[in-house]
Amino acid sequence: MSYSQTYTNSEAQADSKAQPSVQDSEGNSYRTVKIGDQIWLAENLRSTKFQDGSAINTAFIPDDDENKLLTYGRLYNWHDVVDERNICPEGWRVATDADWQTLEKTIGMADADLNKEGWRGDNDLAITLKEAQPDSWFKKFDQSKVNQSRFSARPAGVKWGRFYLTQGIYTEFWTSTGATDKKAYNRTLVYPWWNPHKGEINRVKISKDYMFSVRCIKI
């Protein structure tokens, strides 16, 4: 089953976590979801404009393919993520590192792991954020846990300079939390059969010039 098919099926499911949809400044509509006490976009941001209508510098569609826009959203560098004009819909903001830690705790991450860097989380908690996680030769997953949160993460990949990489392999989400002059915190989920970290969530400091997916959280 393709990710677009999974999206169609999951969208049709009745779910108490679902919240009213929201629109950005261009009229793009997004599903939203309540996870614990937080309300998140349940799709990656697709906007090319800030709240004031000015153009976002980055906003790359995977493979420059408009057919992939609804599936994967757009990719942004960190400088656009933290621009005061705000790339999220009105009443929303880009999730911080602390917001992600709250989400991780809600889905079951141990307190001792929240501030660690690298791959974190036990009991395959990352798959509760993923729209799909196929079994592999080496590991079978409890499919009833896949996308339990209805966060619906998809492997959109990453852009670095002229290079677009890892579609179908990784999804990388920016946080709005800087770490150093040149790096900020992000989150990574991994999907392929050969990677042993499919059930974990990666928290690292990484160059602000990469282009990653963005999820907004309600203010």
Results as ranks from 00 to 15, higher is better:
Thr175Gln: 04
Trp174Ile: 05
Gly161Pro: 00
Glu131Ser: 11
Phe163Met: 12
Thr166Trp: 12
Thr171Cys: 12
Phe138Trp: 15
Thr177Asp: 09
Arg162Thr: 15
Lys145Leu: 09
Tyr170Val: 14
Lys145Pro: 00
Gln143Asn: 09
Lys145Asn: 08
Ser152Lys: 08
Lys140Arg: 11
Phe138His: 15
Ser144Cys: 01
Asp142Val: 00
Asp181Met: 03
Glu172Ile: 08
Ser136Lys: 05
Ser136Met: 05
Val158Cys: 05
Leu125Ser: 10
Gln143Ser: 07
Arg150Gly: 09
Phe151Ala: 10
Phe173Gly: 01
Leu165Glu: 13
Ala179Met: 10
Ser176Gly: 11
Lys182Pro: 00
Ser152His: 13
Thr175Glu: 07
Lys182Gly: 13
Thr177Phe: 02
Thr175Pro: 01
Ala156Leu: 04
Lys159His: 08
Leu129Ser: 09
Trp174Phe: 04
Lys159Gln: 13
Gly161Ala: 09
Ala132Val: 12
Thr175Cys: 07
Lys130Asn: 08
Ala126Trp: 02
Arg162Gly: 12
Ala156Ile: 01
Gly178Asp: 09
Gln143Met: 08
Ala153His: 01
Lys182Cys: 04
Lys140Tyr: 08
Val146Cys: 04
Glu172Cys: 08
Ser136His: 07
Thr128Pro: 01
Gly168Met: 02
Ser149Trp: 02
Lys139Glu: 11
Thr166Asn: 14
Phe151Trp: 12
Lys159Cys: 05
Lys182Asp: 12
Gln148Ser: 12
Thr180Cys: 07
Val158Gly: 01
Asp142Met: 00
Gln148Tyr: 05
Thr180Pro: 03
Leu165Ala: 14
Ala179Trp: 06
Asp135Val: 02
Ser144Asn: 09
Phe163Lys: 13
Ala156Asn: 07
Phe163Asn: 15
Ile127Trp: 03
Ala179Phe: 07
Gly157Arg: 05
Arg162Tyr: 10
Thr175Trp: 01
Ser176Ala: 14
Ser144Thr: 14
Val158Met: 09
Ala179Asn: 14
Leu129Asn: 08
Lys130Gly: 03
Thr180Lys: 07
Asp181Phe: 03
Gln143Trp: 02
Phe141Tyr: 15
Asp135Leu: 02
Asp135Met: 02
Ile169Asp: 11
Pro155Arg: 04
Asp142Arg: 00
Lys182Met: 07
Phe138Val: 12
Ala126Ser: 14
Glu172Ser: 09
Gly161Ile: 10
Lys140Ala: 10
Leu165Ser: 13
Arg162Lys: 13
Lys140Met: 08
Phe173Trp: 13
Asp135Arg: 00
Phe173Arg: 02
Gly168Pro: 03
Tyr170Phe: 12
Lys139Ala: 06
Gln148Lys: 11
Asp142Ser: 03
Arg150Lys: 15
Gln148Glu: 15
Gly168Trp: 01
Lys130Trp: 00
Lys139Pro: 03
Thr177His: 06
Lys145Val: 04
Arg150Met: 13
Trp137Tyr: 15
Ala153Gly: 05
Gly178Trp: 00
Ser144Tyr: 00
Val158Glu: 09
Gly161Thr: 11
